[in-house]
Nucleic acid binder design. Sequence first.
DNA 1: CATGAATGAGACTTCATTCAT
DNA 2: CATGAATGAAGTCTCATTCAT
Lengths: 201, 201, 201, 201
Amino acid sequence: MAGKRDDRRASILEAAAQCFSRFGYDKTTLQDIGDAARLNKASLYYYYKNKEDLFIQVVLREAERYLSALQEQVLPLTRATDKILAYLTGRLDYYRLVLNLHQLSVESLQRLEPMFDDVYQAVREQELAFLSQLLQEGVTDREFLKLQPERAADALLTVADGIKHEAVQRSRTRFAHEVDYAPVQEKITYTLTLLLNGLRK
Amino acid sequence: MAGKRDDRRASILEAAAQCFSRFGYDKTTLQDIGDAARLNKASLYYYYKNKEDLFIQVVLREAERYLSALQEQVLPLTRATDKILAYLTGRLDYYRLVLNLHQLSVESLQRLEPMFDDVYQAVREQELAFLSQLLQEGVTDREFLKLQPERAADALLTVADGIKHEAVQRSRTRFAHEVDYAPVQEKITYTLTLLLNGLRK
Amino acid sequence: MAGKRDDRRASILEAAAQCFSRFGYDKTTLQDIGDAARLNKASLYYYYKNKEDLFIQVVLREAERYLSALQEQVLPLTRATDKILAYLTGRLDYYRLVLNLHQLSVESLQRLEPMFDDVYQAVREQELAFLSQLLQEGVTDREFLKLQPERAADALLTVADGIKHEAVQRSRTRFAHEVDYAPVQEKITYTLTLLLNGLRK
Amino acid sequence: MAGKRDDRRASILEAAAQCFSRFGYDKTTLQDIGDAARLNKASLYYYYKNKEDLFIQVVLREAERYLSALQEQVLPLTRATDKILAYLTGRLDYYRLVLNLHQLSVESLQRLEPMFDDVYQAVREQELAFLSQLLQEGVTDREFLKLQPERAADALLTVADGIKHEAVQRSRTRFAHEVDYAPVQEKITYTLTLLLNGLRK
DNA sequence: CATGAATGAGACTTCATTCAT
DNA sequence: CATGAATGAAGTCTCATTCAT
């Protein structure tokens, strides 16, 4: 009979997710969210620290769902290398999706990027476990030389995030206000392929 | 030596365009635009009615440029039917581009849609002339039966806009906060093909 | 085994006293007090009417302690006149101490002054008894003519409070936002000396 | 016929000073200040960055006035050593005065201390010039050995501020919620006397 | 024309207080 | 008794818009 508080938190999150995806982050007011959750806006603060916190939690929930789905999508692939590549580039798609979904301009992006890194940090354990397992398979299938799956998984995630981050930073220049993710995706693919080939027997 | 006012208007528009595409509509302040145009924000009101008007003019200018480019792109195609279809679906792409570029959520879209219709209205003359010409070619090439090109052009535009409009309205439902333009494009293609075929000899 | 409620009340009061003296009245939140008392803030309302009531009780407790200490300090003096004067001016010091301790501005003071009068009222019985006793001594020692000690004590307290009150009111003027207590103290001394001399044989 | 903006700034500052000293920092609202200045509260932001900025400017203005007065007060003293000591300890009085005047609790103090350091920084040039001159006199009068007055003045100010700062920090301990400035003053006197004697011939 | 100045509306956030369990 | 939950009022701050000069 416990989770009453959790229920409320969940319904607020649901309301917030709807509002954020309808209105975008900036245009969503706490009044909106409160109305949607049938709660006074002040009450939201009983459950979440502030607007940004609410947004983080929304994105976090979406991240968990998306990444799980992506993992299932990737599993049918035959070779471990392919699974890994497909996962890490699909992950980038999610990033882009979130930004579009919540109408984040390049400028807001600059401000919120560290936040997203926190989100990824929060699901990193699970991502690491997944990647480790894929790498382990690769080892079993003699696709890779014997290696330490955990450390390698960590390295792969770090590299992928690093490339993404660099691309976002570069978009801060004066003449390119949108991030073109195609080359990022390519760079991730290329670099990781190199890495994975290096790991290969 | 009359163009002084027009020069000012143009440089303000340029500044506004930059700001809107960087920050999005909501996050752009008149201060931002004023700074970019090296003009006091109050002065902006001498040249434009208000923020929304400025935005409309920005979009209008872009529309003119984009549609002109599209028209040139389409001309090399062989058959009139193809030119027409390519133009009318390309036009939809422009719509989508504007929304993404300026970070407009589905909800703002609701508010601003009538405005966009006005924009299209403003360039409609030119669009109609272009389409009329294409239709005229089709008649000349015996692709179509003899018809009144102006009225037909108007009908085509109206149909294309109608389909788009309906799709946007439908996205207002609770569970679909993004507009998926692929089916819209398909529907436009399909309907117009029917229409054009119906017109064909 | 009755004192459970009183124990709670006491520990809350202790917590509140600490908070008020650390943060001042305004900056102290009921959350602060609740935390310090290891009690939910809502529970505070079971023991005290509201924040202001809590504050009054804190001040009241301090008043009792301070005035008792002052009474003991004053007793060693030789002549009754001196004891009385020392007590009534020392009392003013307490007033000033409370204000400083709890960061009360002259303006809050306006609002809370009636409250302090209530506090003094609450301990007035005891103050009257003490003053009566001093006056009685003075009569016994032939310092004063025969008089009714209770009524005289009451008169003295009233005069002392009146002078203080007038000084505080005067500080409401535009150009003097601090109360300078030195002249108040002097006026009390002077007036009461006159009074006591007038009573003297 | 300039200075209109400065006039407004000044009148706002005057209003703010009155409010802050009447109500204290926390209880003063921008509404209060706006009302007092006969200006919409939003307009205050046209002249000052925010509430804290307003407060800083108020304190800064007071600091300039107070320190000038103190300097004049100190000049009649005979020996340079005495002038310097009197000035540096008087300065501490000002610090205490500000805190009392604006009802700052020890806790707020923690938060606002860096701000006060900025204020002192802003008038430091003038203070340094004054101290340098006193030191120069001391050299001329053979009270001190030949020394570099500017550097020595800077050292003296730094030491005095350091001692004050340390005392404030120490007041953060659990059991002493008020700063007792008497020992601070003594420590400043003692240390600076040592220093000045060390400088003495 | 241009701008300094002013403001109302509305956003986020905090807090004393109330109430049902 | 105790508390989780809820809220209205109020405070700081931002911004589109207006107006007098």
